[in-house]
Simulated scan of single mutants.
Amino acid sequence: MTTDHRAQVDELLADYRRSRDQLASVHRDLARISASATSPDGSVTAVVGPQGGLTDLELTPDAYRMRPEQLAQVIVRVTQEAAAKAAERAYKTLTPVLPAGTDPAALVKGTADLRPEEIAPPAPTRARPVDDEDFEQRDWLNVEATPRRSR
């Protein structure tokens, strides 16, 4: 009986080591993800890392001919495009190791096990209208602190 338990423990340990090795491999693959995007005119190229953070930005001399606001918009747009590519690569890296039916995008966003109503932002609260006759704002015990109306 003891050898049966020992065999089960050895099998569990082997499974655990395989899982850890696979996890380490996926982690290394995720850490190596990089993506880039270039503006249609070729003046701006953004490179992002695995989590979409900007790691490199290349501007050609033509980029400096744009107005600052326009250049900023191009940089943001190109960086977002590169980040979307990096995210897609991360999803493809994660998919083979996730349980069937798990959405890798939702997992990365941290919403994989949440229902839509749990993710939705809270409904905005309505501010109470200011009312000149709002007696809650008056301090009846301290006459000096009570706001006086000008006549």
Rank of each mutant, 00 (worst) to 15 (best):
M1P: 12
T2N: 12
D4P: 05
H5Y: 13
E11I: 06
R20M: 08
D21P: 02
D21W: 01
Q22P: 03
D29I: 07
R32P: 06
A35Q: 02
A37N: 03
P40L: 14
P40T: 15
S43P: 05
G52P: 09
G53S: 13
T55R: 13
D56G: 15
E58G: 05
P61F: 00
Q70K: 07
A72H: 10
V74C: 06
I75F: 00
V76T: 10
R77A: 15
V78P: 05
A83I: 02
A87K: 09
R89I: 07
A90M: 03
T95G: 04
P96M: 06
V97P: 10
V97L: 05
P104A: 00
P104L: 00
A106G: 09
K109C: 06
R115G: 01
R115C: 04
P116V: 03
I119N: 05
A120M: 10
P124C: 07
R126L: 15
A127M: 12
R128V: 12
V130I: 14
D131Y: 04
D131K: 14
D134E: 09
F135E: 00
F135A: 02
R138S: 08
R138Y: 11
W140V: 13
L141C: 09
N142C: 08
N142W: 10
E144T: 14
A145D: 10
P147V: 05
R149D: 04
